[in-house]
Design a protein around this nucleic acid. Structure first.
Lengths: 140, 140
DNA sequence: TTTACTGCAAACTGTTTGCAGTAAA
DNA sequence: TTTACTGCAAACAGTTTGCAGTAAA
């Protein structure tokens, strides 16, 4: 819990219990992409009662503090993951909803050159591939 | 109006006035990416009163009939464009909200190979670049 | 002790839906 | 004349917000 406290203070946030718990959950589930609802449910399952509105606030603050990244793989729900050092994009299995991360420098470079061709400067991008993953295609 | 009527019947939809008007609007604004709200407003401006709920229904039916494509460039709102023959992706200017379409076979191919490497089969993808367009970067 | 933060409930936004009436075939 | 469609109002889902009370510094 000291680590979480330090991380929070480092980005200028009071080390409150809700924030510590959310951060702890994200840390212990690295690589997962969780919605606010899921964070809420997981915390409650482990006996920690944090209000859903607070979770939304905390996740948004974490995003602003660049501790987490927000993604929207489907039309309705945002998911959050701990921010990693390297940029990566995502594949989402439409059957099992597993998320696979990948990095591809060539695509990144191509993007830049396309933008440049049009006189545009990229400020952000999202690239999501909706797939049927190996496991799902095997089990029919 | 005969053209619209025929197009609608071709995909098995009754040629009703709301549908004809929405299709007409999309046809006369090819290349535009309009939200349901914008469709609603534009129709009303030209003196055609169609209920917003109907516009949502019609656009969804058009999507199912593959007459239009739905995109979500921001978290909250869907936009629609007439379906073209070729696949393309989008750049959206974060300042003026202009949408620029582009096609890049190399990226498409790279996507496929990345998916394959992971044993995945792509069923869909979205690739959006958020940019500052030429005009916007010029006028500071 | 001060001020940022949380819980609660209510609001909000884009979108969908049930139902009774209307228009296309 | 039948049946699909529309308008209306209410519901919906995820998310945000105002406010009064609570806890971190």
């Amino acid at each position: 819990m000291q680590y979480e406290t330090d991380e929070l203070k480092k980005v200028g946030l009071k080390a409150t219990l809700p924030r510590i718990h959310v951060l702890q959950l994200l840390l212990s589930n690295e690589g997962e992409h969780m919605s606010a609802e899921v964070v809420y449910r997981k915390l409650h399952e482990s006996g920690v009662d944090v209000n859903l509105a607070t979770i939304y606030r905390v996740l948004t603050q974490f995003e602003e503090a660049e501790l987490v990244e927000r993604h929207q793989f489907d039309a309705t729900t945002s998911v959050f993951e701990l921010k990693q050092d390297d940029h990566h994009d995502h594949m989402v299995c439409v059957r099992c909803h597993q998320v696979i991360e990948y990095v591809n420098a060539e695509i990144e470079a191509l993007q830049e050159s396309i933008a440049k061709q049009h006189g545009c400067e990229i400020v952000d991008h999202k690239h999501v591939m909706y797939v049927i993953c190996h496991e799902c295609s095997v089990k029919k």
